[in-house]
């Protein structure tokens, strides 16, 4: 699981999936069958990033992790979120379907330049990691000097 996001655009995989479905539509419109059937559904829920004038919110869906095993760092305007996910195993049971992600994950997100390094909060609820970063411009009263 690796995603690199640029600003506020959707992730590359999302764009790729959109492109695939777009191509499928074109093929269908031309009366042709697409050579490969692309899945209509994604299996990876998207990361949501939102911003207001005062803050940036990142919502990263990662179910069933130990929040202690997640590292969040902010360097300049680059946020890195990485961690490890372990999936429960059983000795006595046979695994008949195995789709859930296991292992390390790493995300790199470019944030606006005015994020405040000192005011970053993170919480983990219902399997969603929420990182809230305050923006400097809104908090700081603007002084205008008359020349």
């Amino acid at each position: 699981m690796f995603a690199r996001l640029n600003g506020f655009e959707r992730s590359l995989t999302d764009n790729f999936m959109q492109l695939e479905s777009e191509m499928d539509r074109l093929f269908q419109a031309a009366g042709l069958r697409s050579r490969h059937q692309t899945a209509n559904h994604s299996t990876q829920p998207p990361m949501h990033i939102g911003s207001t004038e005062s803050q940036v919110d990142i919502y990263l869906p990662v179910a069933g992790i130990d929040p202690k095993a997640v590292t969040i760092s902010l360097e300049g305007n680059q946020m890195t979120i990485s961690g490890q996910r372990d999936v429960e195993k059983s000795e006595s049971a046979k695994l008949v379907k195995n789709e859930r992600f296991e292992g390390q994950f790493h995300y790199q997100i470019n944030l606006p330049d005015d994020v405040d390094q000192e005011r970053v909060e993170a919480s983990y609820e219902q399997g969603v990691l929420h990182v809230k970063i305050a923006r400097r411009e809104a908090a700081k009263p603007r002084q205008i000097t008359i020349q």
């Binding site: 299996t43 990876q44 829920p45 869906p61 990662v62 179910a63 006595s92 049971a93 992600f101």
Partner: peptide, 27 residues
């Protein structure tokens, strides 16, 4: 909304099955 097909693991033992599905964010 974006429709997502959740990933699952299914464990089978003598007594039955356990299905685990990743649905982060759902209350």
């Amino acid at each position: 909304y974006q429709s997502v097909r959740p990933r699952v693991d299914i464990h089978e033992d003598k007594e039955g099955i356990t299905l685990l599905a990743d649905i982060p964010g759902v209350s």
